[in-house]
Amino acid sequence: DETSESSELVEKVNSQLNSEDVGRLFAVVHLGGLQRKVTTEDLILVGKRIEADVGDRIILNKVLLVGSKDFTLLGRPVLHQDVVKVEATVVEKTLTRPIIRSYYRRRKKFRRFKLQRFPQSVLRINSIQLNP
């Protein structure tokens, strides 16, 4: 009866996948060494300079998980590109605020003061599509 239960569940999920309307989706994407949970119209900050120009639309390939209200699809470890497609727009490419690097050695007349700024990029998630 356990197998019949699970097959029933799989049937339910498949019927939802094949239907047009699955509601709002969310996804967990691997981006810049981090796993980020996103849904459409989200803003995410990446602590790296992205090669694409601002306004360019990019595809986030490493999708680890997709979920809707009623079901969740887990990748092992990533979902196939035929299953899900996450698109994002590069909205901003900036630098961080000046970060202070200050250090000294006591009684040694040794003092250093540096200001560092690191590249940053902001992405806007445009769409998460199942069976693109």
């Binding site: 709002r24 849904t39 119209e41 995410i44 209200k69």
Partner: peptide
């Protein structure tokens, strides 16, 4: 920045 993520729909499930 206090957070590196902004969303209007924090939870779907």
């Amino acid at each position: 920045l206090r957070k590196n993520w902004h969303t209007d729909t924090p939870s779907i499930q």
